[in-house]
Design a protein around this nucleic acid. Sequence first.
DNA 1: TCAGTAGCGGAACGCTGGTTCCGCATCACC
DNA 2: GGTGATGCGGAACCAGCGTTCCGCTACTGA
Lengths: 186, 186
Amino acid sequence: MSTPSPALRIDARRNRERLLAAAAQLFEEKGAAFSVDEAAARAGVGTGTFYRNFPTKTALLSALVAQQLDELATQPVESDGDAAEAVLRFVRDAITGSRRKHDLVVALEAAGYTSADDISEASTRFRQRIGDLLARAQETGAVRGDLGLEDLLALVSAASASASRDGVSAQQVAAVITDGLRATPT
Amino acid sequence: MSTPSPALRIDARRNRERLLAAAAQLFEEKGAAFSVDEAAARAGVGTGTFYRNFPTKTALLSALVAQQLDELATQPVESDGDAAEAVLRFVRDAITGSRRKHDLVVALEAAGYTSADDISEASTRFRQRIGDLLARAQETGAVRGDLGLEDLLALVSAASASASRDGVSAQQVAAVITDGLRATPT
DNA sequence: TCAGTAGCGGAACGCTGGTTCCGCATCACC
DNA sequence: GGTGATGCGGAACCAGCGTTCCGCTACTGA
C-alpha cells in the first residue's frame, strides 16, 4: 500500500499527488461540479497529465469518494461501548461537519447507480459499519426500531445537505434529527 | 387570467400548452436535467417553437416552478384551525409526495440565487404562508421553538429529495422529522 | 377561395467540458 | 555528461446543449 507503483518517476508521483490534493479541494468547494481543466490547472499540470493518472474524470471522483467514505465510517466505531451514542454522534458529525462530508454522503447516493468498484466496495464497508451500529442501538431501545439503514442514511444525507445552505443552522437541523431518532414511534 | 394573450392562433396556443405539459412531465421525471430539444420533441414541436413561447429554458422552469409552488403553499392553509397540524401535514406531504413536489421544493433553494421574477414572487408568498403557520404552531408549543423558517424549509426540501430514493421509506423519514419537530429542545 | 401574415421546424452556431494525441522536455541510468 | 525512454503540456477533437435564424407552412379574415 505504501508504494503502489514501484516504478514511477518522482515528478510523476508528485504530479499525481498534486492532482489528488487539488481535486479534493475542489470537491470540497463545489462538489463534483468542477472541470478537469480546472483540477489540472490548480494542480499546476496539463490535462494530459490528468488523463495519464486517471482514465476518466469519474474514476478520479470514485477514488476521492471511496477514500473519504472509509474515513467517515471508521470514525464512529471508536466508541464501542455505547452504540446509540456512536450513531447519534455519526449523525451529528455528518450534519454539522464540513461541506466535504456532506457532498460525500450525497455521493453515497450516486454509488447506487455507479458501478465504480472503488466506490461500491467502500460503500459496502460503510454500510456494514453503520448498519451494525444502528442495529445495536436499536436493540437497546435508545434509537427507534422502525427505521432501516437506508432510511437513516437518507435522513443524514438530507440533513447534511440542508445544513450546508446559507441561513440554516446546522445545530438546529441536527437537533431535530437526533431527537426524532430517539423518539418512540407513534 | 383566462385569456392572457388575446390574439394567438389556435395552433400556437395548443403548442404552448403541449410544451408546458411535456416540460412538467419531464420535470417530474428528471428534475431540471432535460434538454430543450427533449421537451420540444416530446411536445411534438421544433425548438424554434419552444423559443417563441419562452425566452429561455430558465424562463420555462421558472414558470413551472412558480405555478406549482403556489399550489403547494395553498394546500396546508385549509386547516386554519390547527397551525401545528397544518405544518406537520405540509412536512409530511412534501416528503412523501410525488417526485414533482420534491423537485419543486428543491427548486425553492435555487430561487435564492435566481432573480426570475415569477419564482421570487411565488417564493415570497410561499415563505410567508409557511412562516406564518410555523410561528403560530410554535406559539402553541406544539412545534419546538428553536427553529427558523429557513431551517425547516431546507430540511424538508432535502428530505423530500432523498426520500424518493430506492429502498428508502418516505413514511419513516417523514416520521423521524415530524417527531423531531414536536420534540422539546434538549 | 385567396392573400397576407403569424407561426413553424429544424439546420446551424457558439460555448462548455470530457477525452485524445503528439512533439517536446525531463528524468534515470550508464 | 550523454542517451533513451518516460512523462509532460496543451492544442485539437468531439459531443451535448442552449440559442438564433430563416425559408416555408398553414391559419385567419375577407
